[in-house]
Simulated scan of single mutants.
Amino acid sequence: MVSISGEEIEEAIGWRHHLHQHPELGFEEHETSAFIATRLAQWGYKIHTGYGKTGIVGTLSKGSSQRAIGIRADIDALPIAEQSGVSHASRTPGKMHACGHDGHISMALAAARAASRSEFDGTVHFVFQPAEENEGGGRAMVEDGLFRDLPMDRIFGLHNWPALELGKLVARDDRMMAAFGTFEIKVTGRGSHGAMPHEGADPIVAASQIVSALQAIASRNVSPLESAVVSVTQIHGGDAWNVIPEEVVIKGTTRWFEETIGAKIKDRISVIANNVAASFECSASLDYLSRYPATINDPESARIVRQSAASLSEIEIVDAQPSMAAEDFAFMLREKPGCYFWLGAKKEGRNPGLHSSFFDFNDQLLPLGARMWLALIDSQLPKAG
């Protein structure tokens, strides 16, 4: 496997810090994409644009083999005000790389640079995907013809995982991340003076009972052997101390693995909201969106990841339970065999989790991730003879 020098790793860390200082939200990653494309072009990669608006794919072919793999890195930031206090903190108020995508980009770029001087046989596509955070950039790239225009045998994606010790790797044969949906329930009643509640129909009381009743979906409508989450995360209603409002809005998220469970959750939310609201002389309307499918690995692709990782002394293969968080790499796995895996990124001392305003990618992981990508390229595109 081609080596990566210490100077190259330091430069890649510099890229990561630059990207961290200049975060861009989903489908707005214009400067980030230009940063990526400039470097890939310098190393001889053919640049493809037009996938998922701001997505970038760098393609490099060597030898005569028709084999091809994809390596995906997400590139968007989050609408969070950074409080990490690091010297390379975000310079854009209200936006930050709170999930480590700046690190994912830099790991992939470091691997792409090294791969440009390696002797593999086949084609590697480095897929830099926009809008992973809630906006479905993976789906957009697929719909724009990513796999139609750039055939791949398999595709791989990784995520830094602060809950795991540095260098530990999890690549499950099946479930990795849950499917997710969002819901908004509008509860409408009849407003009244707070001192005369009997003259109205109180949507706040109705909404409170709906929130409580929704908790029974996972505990009473889904088998204990299956996984399901229904979480209310917002309630909005009223703007005066002494006025019962006309309307209350409840918002939240749902998670599941089996599609039948996802359908059951949606149905039960609707039934509960409407019937509970009616019992308080109110009405309810539901706006429900199924956002991402579950991230399910292809077993053979997961075996390939574990086998490649076993060739690296710095990485330890472990097992872990799947996460109820969601990931839009799922859309790519619906189209192509592949594997999504976690690389442990735990820091000594304070170790903020993903999406924390205090989070900053662990730079110690960068060389491990880059070498992991190179090991996969060596495994899947070996030079003949």
Rank of each mutant, 00 (worst) to 15 (best):
M332V: 00
R268F: 10
N297H: 00
S270A: 15
W241V: 10
N274Q: 15
I315S: 03
S227H: 04
T233F: 07
A325R: 09
L225K: 09
G238K: 05
L312T: 12
W342Q: 08
L225R: 09
K264D: 15
D267Y: 08
F341E: 07
G338M: 06
I315Q: 03
Q234V: 08
L225H: 09
D239P: 07
T233N: 08
G262S: 14
Y292I: 05
V229I: 13
V232S: 06
F280Y: 15
L312V: 12
T260L: 11
V271P: 02
N297S: 04
K347C: 12
V249E: 01
D319I: 01
E335D: 02
K346G: 09
E281K: 15
E348P: 07
D287W: 04
L225P: 05
L286Y: 00
E300H: 11
N275I: 08
E281W: 07
G349P: 04
A278S: 13
R268K: 15
Q321E: 14
I317E: 11
K336T: 07
G344P: 08
D267E: 15
A320F: 14
E327C: 02
P293T: 06
E246Y: 10
E258F: 03
I235E: 03
I250P: 11
I315F: 04
S279T: 14
W241A: 12
Y292H: 13
